[in-house]
């Protein structure tokens, strides 16, 4: 099966078949990452540009490695050191990159919808690597991948997402992906950090964290951006940790063998207690590893190289 889209902008507009295709393809690429020579020639001659308007370690490195494992030429542009500081618009910057032969642009941008703007205007494929509070679809895919890998299914899984849903692109992508694949999703967090009419996203809004995590298979903790305290969303980190932090006590309310997920970077002692983050149920680092395989699948499928994934040649 071939993917019939040029861009990956959001989980919300993917259908189940497409999600399956991404996950299945990622599974075969994950095998590549266990080989001695972790590289296939699939995207030789293709150029992938990481265009990042926000600082990032994990996503940036993950995309860069994914591109390199596929033999693409990967260029990273951090806008703090580019002509963006001279006032160039996003669209002009992207058009210039396309003129230089970029086949794919991986965009991280603080404005929701920024990748949609590029996708409408450019011939190159555009991959959303996080657009403001909107979505982070490759994170959503790697979350689904990790759940499927660990639990063997997504359908019927009960998941709780806890924390700052309002500002979280990770939450929006996870909610879209999980609900589409038949999981049941609950959310919980301070009311100041829950979006208006959150239930329209297809989730159950729980008044307390205890209620949210009781009996679930998956707990996804969101990073609390520490500056939220200064902006009046929460009175103190201390109180936040007390009512919405994942402690061992709250962990025991969940189903035996629950998966603890977190998109990183974690605030130890705020949204997650250190002993939980480092404990046996945490799959936080598996998520990171899987991220590379998922992004390889995304780059490969969007490149339109419907033929060989390169897996056989290298084997």
């Amino acid at each position: 099966m071939k993917l019939k889209r040029k861009d990956l902008l959001e989980m919300r507009s993917l259908d189940r078949e497409e999600i399956h295709l991404f996950l299945d393809t990622a599974e075969s690429f994950k095998e590549v990452l266990t080989r001695e020579i972790k590289k296939v020639p699939t995207l030789r001659g293709k150029t992938v540009v990481n265009l990042f308007y926000e600082p990032s370690t994990r996503t940036r490195t993950s995309f860069e490695l994914a591109g390199k494992r596929l033999s693409a030429d990967v260029i990273h542009i951090a806008t703090q050191a580019s002509s963006v500081v001279k006032g160039e618009t996003l669209l002009d910057t992207a058009r210039n990159l396309e003129a230089m032969g970029a086949d794919m642009i991986v965009l991280r941008h603080p404005a929701p919808g920024a990748p949609h703007l590029l996708a409408r205007t450019l011939r190159s494929s555009v991959i959303n690597a996080g657009d403001g509070a909107h979505e982070h679809p490759t994170q959503g895919l790697l979350d689904l991948f990790t759940i499927r890998e660990r639990l063997g299914r997504i359908e019927g899984v009960k998941a709780a997402i806890v924390g700052d849903i309002l500002h979280s692109r990770v939450a929006r992508s996870a909610i879209a992906g999980l609900t589409k694949m038949g999981a049941k999703v609950r959310v919980s967090g301070p009311p100041t950090l829950l979006p208006l009419e959150a239930s329209t996203l297809g989730v159950q809004v729980c008044p307390t964290m205890e209620e949210a995590v009781r009996g679930v298979d998956v707990i996804m903790m969101l990073r609390l951006q520490l500056e939220r305290q200064g902006r009046g969303f929460i009175p103190s980190l201390r109180e936040y940790a007390r009512f919405w932090g994942l402690t061992e006590g709250r962990l025991r309310l969940a189903k035996e063998g629950v998966l603890i997920m977190h998109p990183g970077p974690i605030n130890r002692g705020v949204e997650i207690a250190p002993e939980v983050a480092d404990g046996p149920y945490a799959v936080i680092l598996d998520q990171v590893t899987n991220g590379i395989a998922v992004r390889m699948a995304v780059l490969y499928l969007l490149s339109g190289e419907g033929g060989s994934s390169g897996l056989e040649e290298a084997a």
Binding site: R12, A133, H134, L196, A198, L201
Partner: peptide, 15 residues
């Protein structure tokens, strides 16, 4: 406008 659509699009709402 702050509501269902702003929630979905991740855009900051005006109540």
């Amino acid at each position: 406008h702050e509501g269902r659509v702003s929630t979905e699009l991740g855009l900051k709402g005006i109540p």
